[in-house]
């Protein structure tokens, strides 16, 4: 029985791909028993902390943290959240590499993860550019040469604060969040790669 409406078809496909016990499992294959498996969810948790602390900074605007001690603390949370985010992500990446976790039609899971990592680097970089301090001045004026040499600089101007702020707080986080969402759904859909 196939639904005749667009809505019905999407619902049927969604339910078929993600039955409730696959979306929110309460069992895992027995081989999923190592601390290395927790670094994915730790990365995700750090991402949540980064988004939340960034949202608090956004409430008062990009210059707030330079003049308020509370603001400075929230900025510190944003920085250390980012350091932890990359820390956990790299350990997760090493683990998945040595488990060859792309086996069994899981290549797209690897690809979405790898692209998330690269775009996270770009997101962190635009964060440095929008700090409105010496770091931003120096990193911007240095990084422009690489971006200009690659042609990207003609359209992505690291010295344009407004443009970089938009990339940092909207465009890049949105894409990273969507990729991470897709990455997690793929893990739920395909399951955890079995032992070699």
């Amino acid at each position: 029985m196939t639904a005749s409406t667009w809505t019905g078809r999407i619902r049927d496909r969604g339910v078929a791909a993600f039955p409730p016990d696959r979306l929110l499992p309460d069992t895992q294959p027995v081989y999923v028993a190592s601390w290395i498996y927790v670094f994915g969810v730790l990365t995700l948790a750090a991402f949540a902390v980064v988004l939340a602390s960034g949202a608090v900074i956004a409430l008062a605007g990009p210059a707030w943290w330079h003049t308020s001690s509370v603001g400075h603390y929230v900025n510190s949370v944003h920085l250390w959240g980012t350091e932890l985010f990359f820390f956990f992500m790299v350990v997760h990446l090493w683990g998945k590499f040595f488990m060859a976790a792309w086996r069994g039609r899981r290549a797209l899971t690897w690809i979405t993860g790898a692209v998330s990592f690269l775009l996270s680097i770009a997101t962190a970089f635009t964060g440095y550019l929008t700090q409105q301090n010496f770091d931003s001045q120096w990193i911007g004026t240095q990084a422009k040469d690489g971006l200009n040499a690659s042609g990207v600089g003609a359209f992505f101007n690291v010295l344009n604060f407004g443009q970089m702020l938009m990339w940092h707080i909207l465009l890049l986080p949105l894409v990273v969040a969507l990729l991470i969402g897709g990455h997690i759904l793929l893990v739920r859909r395909r399951g955890v790669a079995p032992p070699l």
Partner: peptide
């Protein structure tokens, strides 16, 4: 550890 903020 706080966070760095060298003035522009």
């Amino acid at each position: 550890f706080s966070s760095p903020d060298v003035k522009p």
